[in-house]
Design a protein around this nucleic acid. Sequence first.
DNA 1: TTTTGAGTTGTTCGA
DNA 2: GTCGAACAACTCAAA
Length: 473
Amino acid sequence: MQPVILWFRRDLRLQDNPALAAAAASGRPIIPAFIWEAEEGSAAAPGAASRVWLHHSLHALDQSLRERDASLILRAGDSREELRRLVHETNAAAVYWNRRYEPDIIRRDAAIKSELKENGIDAASWNSSALIEPTDLLNASGKPFQVFTPFWKACLKREFEAAVASPRGPLKFTKEPPSSVALEELGLRPRRPWHETMMAANAPGEAAAAVRLKEFVKQSVEHYDSARDIPGIDGTSMLSPHLHFGEIGPRQIVDALPDHSDNPKGSRVFLSEVGWREFARYLLFHFPQTTDTPLKPDFERFPWEPDEHSLRRWQRGETGYPIVDAGMRQLWQTGWMHNRVRMIVASFLIKHLLQPWQRGAEWFWDTLIDADLANNTLGWQWTAGCGADAAPFFRIFNPFGQGEKFDAKGEYVRRWIPELRRLPDKFIHEPWTAPADVLKEAGLELDVHYPSPIVDHKMARARALMAYDKMRL
DNA sequence: TTTTGAGTTGTTCGA
DNA sequence: GTCGAACAACTCAAA
């Protein structure tokens, strides 16, 4: 019998996988394949940290296939070209996959699907990664929602589909697999092994994602509504990289959330974060230009002051504002940053340093293991005030105020900036205000061990508001 | 059909 | 120390 090619993309799991379930139901032998296409020039081309995660995730998927006497066929190159080849080599009758929603990828996949169909191949795709597909929902006037709350209310009125049931019986894989390149040959890991420390704290793969979800539901979701704001504790789900690569799907998350607990607010707030992920994908689908263009056109006139030096000090965590620098160093060392701190550092780059939000988005894109085009776009436009349902521009985070509020004891700052460790709590977020004897006692010399602030907060705030006024003239 | 009120995450100022 | 108002402007849903 002619086989079916199961084209893995951002759905690197065997559970809750509708394309896999359909392939199994077809009765055809399955050829599980992944094609590495760098997608150069596309906004969706994965960044460096993300590629490292992908490497490990592919390895994990291959391992679980090997437990089922199969293996993941790897190819590198143009997706259309490689699929053409695979179909030819294996005489496959069908190609099944789960959809992606990035603008460039949608275009590419549509072309692939029509070509396959023209050639008599059964090409079909499913939704594995959205609770609500972007095409499924419009407001009463037939337009896409642009405000989160009405969007999410409309989503919640729908019944979310449950996760896809696992196919009955053992999966039937091909006995004659086509050739595969070795995982190493994809070149997803860097030559210089900076990724080793980054991956020490991370475990890609479907099994690890399931464990993470289970632990989160058991230990953290109940207090999520308040604990998620404290960067010094592990109050967030840490599911974002797993979600990005589809090692777990949102339906599995919804299914796992408890209906009631002592604090139903925890679950509700967490679910609405999943809702923000949906909203981000929805917006990117309906406003594909927003990856680099502000949704609010006024902001094309914003008087940014691009400056490599400022950008670099932000990237390196050398701004002199501890909460900002701690976040940037956590990002650099682990490929992840706490959500509260992401908002703080983004606000700082945009408003205190007047750097274009696109520069920040690029840095996150390259350094985050959970880099996701839709989430990254929404997050940066939200902070910059130029996106859908964005924060008002005048909402400028005060970096030491945020530090004092959410990291009162300085646990987070001390973890990532060891040179500040001995500073008393009172000065941990404002080292430049510490008296000389306190600094000496803490073994800290400003501008030697740790920089003075790159800009004065009050001045920078006034300057940002002035720039905003200038734009609106 | 038109109007009205509310809207993830904040800060500052003055009473 | 605590409180409310101001900071803009626009979308969307409900009345």
